[in-house]
């Protein structure tokens, strides 16, 4: 069985957030809503200062606390390990959001859809068509572009990444690009102390 996962290459990521905009495009996300964010952090003291760019995303945890707390069964794990939210079942209690140590969940408030991307209440044709997929009030997150995965495509954020800092594939397959990368470059999951067993790894 497949276990889809992602590796982030911190050596190459330039913090451009092209991934973020690609995700906004693919998923018609309202203003201020992110399924992925590339964060930055400065460290060190001049002149030995530096900045690291850290892409973040839902880690599709094997031991997903968001799924465990979900009282409605809306959050579930697909056959290939992708953690999904069924918005037909979701009641918007946001228990999952306080359970996710990575703060990866967003409530799709109704006013998000009303003010529009330009903030004027004018809804563009792009939004009109795209917003139809959401049930206002439900909680949502990155689904690893599950439909693209079903169609044998890489996620939208992955294909656009100019520096190939996002590598996607089957972690159960030892020959897949992410598996190799994790092995060869000592990949580490985010916040392992949270015991969520993420399917996302970082290499440096």
């Amino acid at each position: 069985m497949a276990r889809m996962g992602m590796v982030f290459d911190l050596k190459t990521c330039i913090g451009c957030n092209a991934c973020v905009v690609a995700c906004k495009q693919e998923n018609s996300l309202p203003d201020g809503v992110f399924f992925t964010k590339t964060l930055s952090e400065e460290y060190g003291v001049f002149p030995l200062a530096n900045r690291v760019y850290i892409p973040t995303i839902c880690n599709h945890c094997d031991d997903a606390p968001c799924e465990k707390v979900c009282p409605s069964g809306a959050t579930y794990t697909r056959h290939d390990g992708i953690v999904m939210v069924d918005d037909a079942k979701c009641i918007g209690c946001s228990s999952c959001a306080v359970a996710c140590p990575y703060d990866q969940r967003t409530t799709m408030d109704a006013d998000n859809f009303l003010k529009g991307l330009f903030g004027t209440g004018e809804i563009t044709p792009f939004e009109k068509e795209g917003y139809a997929r959401y049930t206002p009030g439900t909680v949502t997150k990155c689904d690893f572009c599950s439909q693209r995965v079903d169609a044998n495509l890489d996620p939208a954020c992955v294909v656009t990444c100019p520096t190939n800092a996002r590598i996607f594939g089957d972690l159960d397959d030892p020959h897949s690009a992410p598996s190799k990368m994790i092995r060869e470059r000592n990949g580490r999951p985010p916040m392992p102390e949270k015991n969520t067993r993420p399917k996302v790894y970082y290499v440096n």
């Binding site: 465990k68 707390v69 979900c70 009282p71 409605s72 069964g73 809306a74 079942k89 979701c90 009641i91 918007g92 209690c93 946001s94 228990s95 409530t107 799709m108 408030d109 049930t135 206002p136 009030g137 439900t138 909680v139």
Partner: peptide, 24 residues
């Protein structure tokens, strides 16, 4: 607080794992 209050009855479906369901 609930995003979709009309469906809130669903909150009791997973007492096997969710404290919210158990509580409900």
């Amino acid at each position: 607080h609930m995003g979709v209050p009309m469906k809130s009855w669903r909150a009791m479906l997973r007492p096997d794992r969710s404290w919210i369901s158990r509580g409900l």
